[in-house]
Amino acid sequence: MRAANALRLTVLVLLVALVMRPKWFEVAFAPLAPVGGPVMYERTSLLSLSLNHLYLVIAASGAATLVAVALAILVTRPFGVAFRPLARSIANMGQTFPPVAVLALAVPSLGFGSGPTLVALFLYGLLPILENAITGLTNLPPAAMEAARGIGMSRWQSLTRVEIPLALPVILTGIRLSVVIALGTATIGSTVAARTLGEVIIAGLLTNNTAFVLQGGLIVGLFAVLIYDAMVQIEARLLHGARI
């Protein structure tokens, strides 16, 4: 446990240093850069690209979470049951749409920039959360549900005090999947001129500068690992508390 925490801290420090003080790493990346070419990406600061990248992911995932959980709640209420198979099919089949395709398809209607990226991330992020939230809200222990009604909880109380807390671990897993996909897909957003860390990678691809590709990829990868790990910890804690 202590070793794991030390590793987490190391990764975090590395990430922060890479983003705030890229100059420190010039020595490490130099062998990968073309002779005489720039080693660290300097056209835009890595910090602002990182923040923008995270902002896109958080905004899209946050909105996706709200909408997906609300939809899942609707289709698991008695009046929305008729829509449940449809919601399941959409969540299932929608996830087969390649993220790049969703992104590219958003461009003709929304133009270039952060707009289509945000929409694509939102739409694509919606589906895993919707699928998991529906699964979580329909696979609840029947005895606990029966008891919630039997002791006199109103529908709203049963939803907020029993159903959502019990489904939370499964919902969080969906959010985690969604966030990690969004972190990766946001890099592709740079192909449609969104300001994300993908910009660094694409600059590297265009100028044959592996140092750029690696630093861009590394920063996104480290963000993904840290966020993934943090969410796993939260889920584990919830699960442990509830002993479900």
Partner: peptide, 13 residues
């Protein structure tokens, strides 16, 4: 009205 059921139906969380 008190209500108790088979399999206790306690809230696991």
């Amino acid at each position: 009205i008190g209500y108790a059921i088979q399999g206790h139906g306690l809230f696991p969380h």
